[in-house]
């Protein structure tokens, strides 16, 4: 084509686009993608984690030319992919325990270094395995600056065991251990922690958040993460239709609303400082996000909208928008 291409119907918002240079298309658009997590796995319909994991690992496989091994914490992702006698993984994959994925990955990385191998290591787990039970190991891996990319697939509760609260569960969310009862229905305000910010506090080379709402953003971050050595952390928002009570075909929409309302900011940090943010494209109220999920049903019970509590959540979203400058992205 002679003239310079200046606009595509969808730009890079979709996975591919026949008019785009193959280099600019997502790894996920390519028939050559690794399908690191392949068909036949037993995740629920519309599982955000299954999707996120394939996106991340296929991108990491691309970035490393296939020189990659994966360490997986116990959790949904492990259970639905490897029930004997079938494995859904098409990458070298190791599962040890719930709390030790970061340490096992350190061990693998140490072995590779000791052997003079260029093979890279990705560790992955859910929010429980990452932010709660495995947090000590994770922090150790960070502070030693071990050459591991740790990926947390955050679905905001312990889904494998039946939707119990984790330190990633947002305020007001109903889980099996934070029922929508009493004066503080659902998870309480003021609980929980921000794993990416804590990761940043270790001063490690690279920390980023990503979401199944934004494929290209996610793949770019995986690629950026694999370009550097040392400890890296990627926190990926992955809606869980089962635990959140959202429709299986709403997984990406829900993730998108989380980003667009400001509750899940997308940013990148290097050596402890935020260096880039993905700007909000079409700002949405948190209510639009909440309404798609039955875990927030109690805010809309009996046709009445719990304006006061929703406003508290909106304030959190607004604070994120301000703090991370999400409207402008600069």
């Amino acid at each position: 084509m002679s003239q310079r291409i200046k606009f595509y119907q969808t730009g890079t918002l979709t996975a591919g686009n026949r008019l785009l240079d193959p280099e600019t298309r997502a790894v996920q658009s390519s028939v050559d993608r690794s399908n690191a997590l392949t068909s036949g796995h037993r995740a629920c319909q519309g599982c955000g984690e299954a999707l996120g994991a394939r996106w991340v690992l296929d991108a990491a496989m691309r970035a490393t030319g296939g020189q990659l091994v994966v360490v997986n914490a116990t959790g949904c992702l492990e259970v639905f992919t490897t029930p004997y006698p079938e494995s859904s993984w098409q990458v070298p994959w190791l599962h040890s325990l719930f709390a030790n994925a970061a340490s096992v990955a350190t061990g693998v990385a140490a072995a590779m270094r000791s052997k003079g191998s260029a093979v890279r290591v990705v560790a992955q787990g859910g929010d429980g395995g990452t932010m709660d039970i495995g947090f000590g190991a994770l922090s150790g891996m960070f502070e030693r600056n071990d050459d591991v990319l740790y990926v947390c697939y955050d679905n905001e509760a312990y889904m494998n065991t039946g939707v119990q609260r984790s330190s990633a569960t947002p305020p007001l969310a109903r889980t099996a251990t934070t029922p929508a009862l009493g004066p503080e229905p659902g998870n309480e305000f003021g609980h929980g922690k921000n794993a990416p910010l804590i990761a940043m506090a270790h001063g490690i080379p690279y920390v980023a958040t990503a979401s199944v709402a934004d494929l290209h953003d996610l793949e770019d971050k995986v690629e950026a993460a694999m370009k550097v050595h040392g400890a890296r952390y990627l926190h990926v928002h992955v809606p869980c239709p089962l635990g959140w009570g959202s429709a299986s075909d709403d997984t990406i929409k829900v993730a998108r609303l989380a980003v667009q309302c400001g509750l899940f900011p997308l940013f990148e940090a290097e050596h402890g400082e935020v260096v880039r943010r993905t700007p909000i494209r079409q700002r949405q109220p948190v209510e639009a996000y909440l309404r798609l999920q039955r875990r927030f049903d109690h805010l809309f019970a009996g046709g009445r909208v719990d304006v006061e509590r929703i406003a508290r959540l909106q304030a959190i979203a607004d604070r994120n928008i301000e703090r991370f400058r999400l409207l402008t992205g600069d």
Partner: peptide
Amino acid sequence: CFECDNCYGVCPDNA
């Protein structure tokens, strides 16, 4: 369909 690859990309089951 204009072959944007979205269906191919977003299927959690590689289906």
